[in-house]
Amino acid sequence: MKNSTSLISTNNVCLHFGNDVVLHDIDFSVEEREIVTLLGPNGSGKSSFLRILIGALQPTGGVVNRRDGLRIGYVPQRLSIDANMPMSVDRFLRLGKSNRGELKSKWVEQVGVADLLSLQVSHLSGGQLQRVMLTHALLADPDILILDEATQGLDQPGEAAFYRLIEQVRKEQGCAVVLVSHDLHVVMSASDRVICLNGHICCEGAPTIVSAAPEYRALFGLGTEGALALYRHDHDHSHDHAPGHAHNHSHDHAHDNTMKHEAKNDAKNDADV
C-alpha cells in the first residue's frame, strides 16, 4: 500500500488526550488522484485524524509523511466567522495568498460562486458556504483535497450534487480527494476506497455500486444520478476490549429501506466505545 509516491502516509499513528486513546496504530496512505472516503461514527476520531493529516494536530505516536511541497486544499466542516470580522467572499477566496488570477476566474466559474463574490461570508447559506470553501481550497492549486463532513446539512439530492461537483473538479484538477463522512453506509460512488475508522481502521473496501437495483431507487430516488453508493462493512473483530460496551450488533445489513435506521443505531453503539 505505501510507496514513495504516496501524497500522505501515516505509520502507526496514535493520538492520546491524557489517558484517553483517540487513535491507535493507524497505517494509512493516499496515492495520486485517488478518492478515499473515511467513515466513522461520532467520536471515532476521524476529525482528529483529518487534523493530523493536514498538520493541525501532532500525533502522540507514529509518523506522518507528506510529499515534499505537497499542496493541500482543505474544506473545514464549518466556518464560523466572528461577527466582528468583515469578510467578503472575494476577499476570503484570496485568503492565504492564493491570488492566481486565471485560476480564480476558472474555479469561480466552475464551482458556481461568481454571483456570491460581493456578499459577506457570514451571510451565506450552508450550501453556498460549502461551495465558497471548496473554491478557496481549489485556489491553493492542490495536489490533494481534504473535506471534513462537507455534506453535513445537505439533503440527499444536495449531497449527490456536491459529490458530482467534487468528481468533476477532481478530474479537472487531477488531485487526490479524501472525504470524511458521518454517514456509515451511503458514500460517494466514485470512491476508490472506503475506510471505516473507529479509533483504528476497522475495515477497508470498495463501495458497492447498486444504482440499478430497485432498492437503491427506492432509497435515493432518481435525482442522484449514481453519485451515491452503499458501503458494506465487513469487520473481522469486535470491540469488546472496551469495558462496559457490548458490541454485539452485526454489520451485515440488509440494504433495504430500514437501512438508514440501522445506520443510526450503529453510530450510537460505536460512539460508546
Binding site: 493536514i54 498538520g55 493541525a56 493541500i72 482543505y74 473545514p76 466556518l79 485568503l95 492565504g96 481534504i146
Partner: peptide, 9 residues
C-alpha cells in the same frame, strides 16, 4: 479565521 485552514496552508 480558522486554525485548521491555516495549518493546511
Amino acid at each position: 479565521l480558522n486554525p485548521d485552514l491555516a495549518a493546511a496552508r
